[in-house]
């Protein structure tokens, strides 16, 4: 565990770094925030995955409750959000690999990468659900 100091109490106010609100909002800033937000959303959604797996490991009744929720409209919406977050975060990670290689840091490239991540995340999520629903359409829930 990292050792952390308690926040010091200054005798007088220390100079602060510029707040977020000082800067003009740019796409790359929004993407940085979205990467973190989708990461946190994925953190929470592992609870759902654990519920689903544990229910499947128990019995048909427990599974029916979990599966029933996930296949409800609310459940489907949450799952779509989960898959979108997953793809968005994955593409964001690939963007970071490109930067780690020392590429794509100039203004036009990083704008393109940002748009590609943003649009790509939605395209992949919608594509996967379209394929999933088309292939497994009509499959009923127990």
């Amino acid at each position: 565990m990292a050792s952390t100091d308690a926040a010091p109490t200054p005798a007088r106010a220390r100079p602060l770094s510029p707040h977020l609100s000082v800067y003009r909002l740019t796409l790359t800033m929004v993407m940085s925030g979205l990467h973190r937000i989708t990461g946190m959303a994925l953190y929470a959604s592992v609870l759902l995955l654990a519920w689903f797996l544990m229910a499947a490991s128990m019995d048909a009744t427990a599974f029916g409750v979990a599966s029933g929720f996930l296949n409800s409209i609310l459940g489907r919406l949450i799952l779509f959000g989960f898959t979108w977050s997953l793809f968005h975060h994955m593409l964001g990670g690939i963007r970071h690999f490109i930067w780690d290689a020392g590429l794509g840091m100039d203004a036009p490239e990083r704008e393109w990468l940002a748009w590609g991540t943003l649009i790509g995340g939605f395209v992949l999520a919608i594509l996967v659900w379209a394929i999933g629903l088309a292939v497994y359409q009509g499959a009923s829930v127990s």
Partner: peptide, 10 residues
């Protein structure tokens, strides 16, 4: 895998 699992019963 998840998409195929979601459509299936117990």
């Amino acid at each position: 895998l998840l998409l195929s699992l979601l459509a299936q019963d117990y």
